[in-house]
């Protein structure tokens, strides 16, 4: 298990847990709407040019950008490690 913000680029993983309490209500809802949920496949694609923030992710079939601070609330398991 590691935090999403620490997941290396292009290493497919799965969301293990999301600490919804850490996120402001509106942000948590938007993240649910974008498909963030336990068990969903996720992969870090790119980091922003400054302080490696924000992070572009593949979640399901979508590409979504979120900030590092939001990624810190998400725990992931690398797909290779899970098998």
């Amino acid at each position: 298990m590691l935090r999403l913000d620490q997941l290396p680029v292009r290493r497919p993983a799965r969301i293990a847990a999301i600490d919804w309490e850490r996120l402001p209500v509106a942000q948590a809802r938007r993240m649910r709407e974008l498909g963030f949920d336990e068990g969903v496949g996720i992969e870090t694609l790119h980091h922003g040019p400054i302080r490696r923030d924000p992070i572009a992710l593949r979640i399901g079939r979508m590409t979504v950008a979120i900030r590092r601070a939001q990624a810190e609330a998400i725990q992931v398991v690398e797909a290779a490690a899970a098998e």
């Binding site: 572009a56 979508m62 950008a65 979120i66 900030r67």
Partner: peptide, 10 residues
């Protein structure tokens, strides 16, 4: 106010 988040579908 609180630091706004950034969340966008690409």
């Amino acid at each position: 106010g609180q630091t706004p988040g950034f969340m966008m579908e690409m």
